[in-house]
Design a protein around this nucleic acid. Structure first.
Length: 584
RNA sequence: CAGGGUGUAGUUCAGAUGGGAGAACGCCAGAAUCGGGAUCUGGUGGUCGAGGGUUCAAGUCCCUCCACCCUGACCA
């Protein structure tokens, strides 16, 4: 490809709506253009990268026996109503209707559709396991699209679905996906980790996320450097703190005028926060839920939701609390509340706590010396607290480290959740009808494009790994009106092309500096400069991530030069530079 | 959705008190020449977000709407 013909409009200035480094560099480099909030066009360079990412993903999918196919983007409302997610997913969906008023959605995901497709003809255990996948556009009406391609309303995703007759088969496929996703990250030459994750709105049992590390990422993760434990913030656990047992004191009600927050209570009653139990009132599908946690910890809403299997859970408003309990929110507590009206859920951090402080269920009062079982009971125990950096690893006890990244892949064991609801049954060896076990596996293709840039860039532009670079080699003819340079540049270009090297020739009639700036901004891995030194029989080969290139004599013949270029391509690796760049 | 901000040339922006729509970069033509967005000459380019109102006169003041960005809940 000749640069003079390539539609890659580059921009010198930072776009005014520049949100993140990937948005800025991909826009300036002529890879993408924003069309509306969260909606993008992929220009030729961007599309080349997308296709390369896609190819890697497809190859790894094919290797584990997944079959590629294609489902429609427009989906009828009926199947979503059947699964109950027309309401649950609700505002997140782009909805539309045809001229007859029949409702549709632009698919935000395809669990309903896949089950609809297979439920009539996937009827025998002999057909299982089955793995299908597709790559297409997904639509989510995000409340606030942000971070460029990282949270778009229209985005490209690979989604795979698997069907199994038993748990063992599901587990095997889950592991296959786990390995395939790791392989994809490795082929992309990225610094990544996989973490235990929350299943969220998709539901199911086990789940892992694949995170590309970048300080600008929006996923918070906790890792243990000594045993390798890693988990997302929604899921991460830490060693349960030990509470020293004390002699039990009698319950006492004390006046605490206008003392509402944990800080206030701690100060007013001169007790440490560890000796206070925070009561948070939530409203869920089955009414009120009171979450109890030690005063020095933060509640983790994702954990609470998955413990209660209720994604609709939300904090009760002060008005609701006042109306239904007659107490301002600062004074609610577990004592005197019965388990029918309010389900009490407690974090393990208060399990052995004695003589603690709770709200008095009466304005301006708290209880001191409260004790479990004697003064109130807990209906459900679980881990519902947010982990903090420095706490002990749940497996080995070493300190947990906090880091950030971008979630590009997410795998789930769904179990029978969708097959049961959507009538996806098969007949087993004994002739019995059973719902199949399912797994679903997502990979954000367009998000990967952005994530790579977030991880691999410097002040001058993008640093593509060879595996996904729009072109592997760029030849820059410094002075296009110099006949010798021109001739040599074109000759080398033709040879490289004939060797199946993806090469771009910058033949534009602009200044040298202009071409070099574009070259760094776009981020071709290897740049060959054909300039004034050609007179002395020399050209330069430079790796994008190195300061200086190497001068190469062309006197021994072009074959040798081309061999050297190919060797440079082989040696090129973004791996070792990553820690010096943006990862913190 | 709530709170805040911004909309003027292709891009980044300037336009105080109401009265001429501007700069730089880009783009086009030409010159010179070419190792880090370099230089010179000439040119091109506008529904001042949209609609309404006040006024002799509105980019500027008022109202309505829209879009985009920032802070929060959601997610591959």
């Amino acid at each position: 490809m000749l640069f003079s013909k390539l539609y890659a409009p580059t921009i010198k200035e930072k776009p005014a709506d520049s949100e993140t480094i990937s948005y800025e560099l991909l826009t300036r480099g002529g890879f993408i253009r924003k069309v509306a909030a969260g909606i993008y066009t992929y220009l030729p360079l961007g599309w080349r990268v997308i296709k390369k990412i896609t190819k890697i993903v497809e190859e790894e999918m094919d290797k584990i026996g997944a079959q590629e196919f294609m489902m429609p983007i427009i989906q009828q409302a009926e199947i979503w109503k059947e699964s109950g997610r027309w309401e649950d997913y609700g505002p997140e969906m782009m909805k539309l209707s045809d001229r007859h008023g029949r409702e549709f959605t632009l698919g935000p995901t395809h669990e309903e559709m896949i089950t609809f497709i297979v439920r009539n003809e996937l009827r025998s255990y002999k057909q299982l396991p089955l793995i299908l996948y597709q790559i297409n556009q997904k639509y989510r009406d995000e409340i606030r699209p942000r971070f460029g391609l990282m949270r778009a309303r229209e985005f490209i995703m690979k989604d795979a679905y698997s069907f199994h007759s038993d748990e063992k088969s599901l587990e095997e496929t889950y592991q296959d996906f786990y390995r395939a996703y790791s392989k994809i990250c490795e082929r992309l030459e990225l610094n990544y980790i996989s973490v235990e994750a929350d299943t969220g709105a998709i539901g199911g049992t086990d789940s892992h996320e694949f995170i590309i590390l970048a300080s600008t990422g929006e996923s918070d993760i906790y890792v243990c450097d000594s045993c390798g434990y890693s988990a997302s913030e929604e899921r991460a656990q830490s060693k349960i703190p030990e509470n020293i047992p004390e002699e039990i004191e009698p319950l006492e009600e004390v006046p605490t005028p206008n003392v509402k927050t944990i800080e206030d209570v701690s100060e007013f009653l001169k007790v440490s926060k560890e000796k206070i139990v925070k009561s948070l009132l939530y409203v869920g599908r089955n009414g009120y839920v009171m979450a109890l946690i030690r005063g020095d910890y933060e509640l983790n809403e994702s954990k609470l939701k998955s413990l209660l299997k209720d994604q609709t859970l939300r904090l009760a408003t002060p008005e609701e609390v006042q109306r239904d309990f007659g107490v301002p929110i600062g004074f609610i507590g577990p004592v005197g509340i019965d388990g029918v009206k309010v389900q009490k859920v407690a974090d393990l951090s208060i399990k052995n706590l004695n003589n603690f402080v709770v709200g008095g269920m009466k304005e301006d009062y708290h209880y001191i010396n409260t004790n479990l079982n004697r003064d109130f009971t807990v209906e459900l125990w679980g881990d519902i607290r947010t982990v903090k950096e420095g706490e002990g690893c749940p497996k080995c006890g070493n300190q947990l480290r906090h880091t950030k990244g971008i979630e590009v892949g997410h795998i789930f064991k769904l179990g029978t959740k969708y097959s049961e609801k959507l009538n996806g049954y098969f007949v087993d060896e004994e002739g019995k009808n059973k719902p199949y076990l399912m797994g679903c596996y997502g990979w954000g293709i367009s998000r990967t494009l952005a994530a790579i840039v977030e991880q691999l860039h410097d002040d001058n532009g993008i640093i593509w790994p060879i595996s996904v670079a729009p072109y592997t080699v760029e030849i820059v003819i410094v002075n296009t009106s110099d006949e010798e340079q021109r001739t040599f540049g074109f000759k080398l270009y033709e040879i490289l092309k004939s060797r199946n090297c993806e090469v771009l020739l910058d033949d534009r009639e602009t200044s040298a500096g202009f071409k070099f700036k574009d070259s760094d901004l776009i981020g071709f891995p290897i740049r060959i400069t054909v300039g004034k030194k050609l007179k002395d029989g020399k050209i330069e080969i430079k790796k994008r991530y190195e300061e200086k290139g190497v001068e190469v004599s062309i006197k021994k013949g072009l074959e040798e030069v081309v061999d050297l270029i190919e060797k440079t391509i082989e040696e090129y690796s973004t791996k070792f530079i990553q820690n010096n760049l943006t990862i913190s």
